[in-house]
Design a protein around this nucleic acid. Structure first.
Lengths: 206, 206
DNA sequence: GTCTATAATTAGATAGAC
DNA sequence: GTCTATCTAATTATAGAC
């Protein structure tokens, strides 16, 4: 170790990971804005300051890049929603506030979700079975427990997930519309705070 | 009148309007599913049982077709939300139930809105100024009045519109996901009813 | 690993016969 | 108004020099 070959391998490896990461970052923006079909690998590469064929080098295909993007987004959700509360009401309140904060910080996930969830597809099936169902099951179990404890308002479990995510995310997913229509910046900390407070009031009993 | 030329003109006119309507119907589905850039005029024409150049004949361009689609969708919203209630609480309850019913019947509008509202564009600006702002202004004026009357729950006016639409529409915009994940059909009358009931409970005081 | 060149396919739009 | 054929430009992916 320490010879030229090792140094070169290390250097190349590091550089490769950097480009790979930049391509994922760029793809998140493009896929969220234009959808999978509407995004071009050239635009992704340009945004990542890379060349278009590097996508096929670092990933198997445009589709493989999309899967890598989703894996990354889901890691980020989990970091945002990480929860060490033990009391049940504090936990759900923490979750609701986390949902709003994440929607504001990363509107791209909700945008991508709507693009993909609009029609059945292999990508949607993979997304549901790999990433969504485990998280959904946890959420629903918690919601039912909260309903029984009288903490949650009267929202049927099979509707709760999408009502809550819809109310938490549209303001941020549609941020460009909101800014032009209403004149507020949805990602402003004060707006996020007011939004989270409102969500807690709406979905939890006093 | 009544001569061959007139008959032919009449026949052609009727046929032309029919094709034009079918192209708009088809474009609604395609634009909602794949976004503007992701939709191909060939796919739209195929779905309308027409030929691809007929789009450029009946509309100036793919973009002109998109504008015609939005005009049509907005006409449909207004029909769905048409309201002859006079009492203020009955009016907002009618509106909320109408929002849910429309989202279920025509998930395409909400899908298109998210596609377009994700990034600034000429299309988004036109959509806001032509169609959204007048309806938004009416909604907000009503919401403020309701807040003062103590009928509406404590949701700030600048958040109310997107919270309500988000909660009303995501379940239906993401219907394919919901069916696979939860196993319910969001457009089922019983589900729509339960969804509307829940929305009224969430956003209005008892 | 990068980057130029390019192959193969598909896109939106148009020409012109009917 | 319709429909075939086609133009130009853009797309994903690959070949091969470096």
């Amino acid at each position: 170790m320490g010879d030229d070959a090792t140094a070169k391998r290390r250097g190349s490896y590091k550089s490769s990971e950097l480009v790979r990461g930049r391509l994922i970052d760029a793809a998140i923006i493009e896929f969220a804005t234009h959808g999978f079909e509407g995004s071009s690998t050239r635009a992704i590469a340009r945004r990542a300051d890379a060349h278009q064929p590097q996508i096929n080098y670092h990933f198997e295909s445009k589709e493989a890049l999309w899967y890598a993007v989703m894996d990354r987004m889901m890691e980020e959700v989990d970091e945002h929603l990480d929860n060490d509360e033990t009391e049940i009401k504090a936990m759900i309140e923490h979750l609701i506030r986390g949902l709003v904060r994440f929607a504001a910080a990363r509107p791209e996930l909700n945008r991508m979700m709507i693009h993909e969830a609009s029609a059945p597809s292999q990508r949607l099936t993979w997304l549901i079975e790999t990433h969504i169902r485990p998280r959904y099951d946890l959420f629903i179990a918690g919601w039912i427990e909260l309903r029984e404890a009288g903490v949650a308002r009267d929202v049927p479990p099979e509707l709760a997930y999408h009502l809550m995510i819809g109310a938490a995310s549209l303001l941020h997913a549609n941020a460009p519309e909101v800014e032009q229509l209403i004149g507020i910046t949805p990602s402003d900390p004060a707006t996020v705070q007011a939004h989270a407070d409102t969500m807690v009031r709406l979905f939890l009993n006093d």
